[in-house]
Design a binder for these strands. Structure first.
Lengths: 220, 220
DNA sequence: GCAGCAATTGTTCAAGCGTATAATAACGGC
DNA sequence: GCCGTTATTATACGCTTGAACAATTGCTGC
């Protein structure tokens, strides 16, 4: 006797792909990339394994799209946070803080990031996605820096600006990484303050220019 | 007919464990952590798969020991480079440079590092190894900083010293990461110079104190 | 030189992997 | 309200995995 085939509802292509990618990220975050198997992902998404091959060329392609989603997600949160600032100084400050504050500093996000990083050296597709995102991050930072220095009346060369962006990017990445890995060692606030005063130093600004609570409406 | 059993030589326990760990690292670096299977590792080490279970409780324990080896290796290279400096300033400078220069900035090392990082959130044993190493790195940096500031006649509080160590660690980690991932974007020399001038800024030193070629015998 | 022990091998096993394919349920057009 | 299309399920296949275990080899002490 056959148990019969279970009923299902059709979803739009966009929804289904989104669901599958989200399920992929859930599995990676929970079990590591080893545990992100076609069957686990399908179960999490509430479908059967075969469906994945209907929407993606294979498991690898799905992983790549998942990676892209994680990275653009992080960058966009910071860019959006920056956009809410009124002055160039506030925008730069908010950008830095957003990068070392939840929801960017999130163990789950870190798990996902790390899992994908380990593929970059092996798989050129992942390398391309990384590069793409790193350059976008640098470009965003360069824009913010350029605006800020202009606001302050200092004109900065493009080379100088990029140099600062690289340094700031490295610092922020490092603080994000260790701050998230060792969340018990740093409070959110302490990490943000630390980031801001370090950025001040890197840019050779006077202490307190970014880190004091002087930016209206920014710190409760 | 049976082909017979291949001949072998017995190795000391230390040698065999070392060989197996090195083979593990080879496999991870080459094929990613997915490719580091018991069989691959055994083949690489020139033994058969079953032997692994004779020296390690299982594959996971072997991976943990491999992780420990990679991390202590990196830290020790930097500490050793620092020790060769004559003054506290030279030691600090050498430490920073060593962390963003081969053999520390090595795609293979990065692969290994990333592969293990992605296990930290999943497996507490890996988290412990990470913590252990991060604290050791911070301690080394604090010692160098403390000595340097004393040499300069500036006395620094322990809190301040740790704060600087955290910032420098983040910066160096970030530069190491992106500099290795995007090796085509930065020359070794440019990365080291960038690191040094960033460290000067972070410590609010005068430009050139660390980065100029003034430290005898240090730069060819 | 041989006895005993430990290291190493070869083989097997169940589980789980990604992929392929045929059957079927759901939906849109008419 | 039926019909063609196709999204989805179910099942199967071929392979690889980590682990287990008995058989056998090499070494060491005597």
């Amino acid at each position: 006797m056959t148990a019969g085939r279970r009923s299902y509802t059709r979803a739009s292509e966009a929804e289904r792909r989104e669901d599958l990618i989200l399920a992929t990220l859930d599995c990676i975050a929970e079990f590591g990339i080893q545990g992100a198997t076609v069957r686990q992902i399908a179960t999490r998404a509430g479908v059967t394994g075969g469906l994945i091959r209907h929407y993606f060329a294979g498991k690898d392609q799905m992983l790549q799209e998942a990676y892209r989603k994680v990275m653009t997600g992080m960058t966009e949160i910071a860019i959006q946070a920056a956009a809410e600032g009124d002055t160039a100084r506030a925008r730069l400050q908010r950008f830095v803080v957003a990068n070392v504050t939840p929801p960017v500093t999130d163990p789950r996000t870190l798990s996902l990031w790390a899992a994908f990083i380990s593929h970059i050296q092996t798989d050129p597709s992942f390398a391309a996605i990384h590069r793409e995102n790193y350059l976008a991050f640098l470009a965003a930072l360069e824009g913010l820096l350029s605006d800020y220095f202009q606001e302050e009346g200092r004109e900065l060369g493009q080379t100088e600006c990029r140099g600062f962006a690289i340094s700031l990017s490295a610092l922020v990445d490092g603080l994000w990484l260790e701050g998230t890995l060792a969340a018990d060692m740093f409070s959110d606030r302490a990490l943000a303050d630390h980031a801001l005063s370090s950025v001040e130093a890197l840019l050779r600004l006077e202490p307190g220019v970014l880190s004091s609570a002087s930016i209206a409406g920014d710190r409760p």
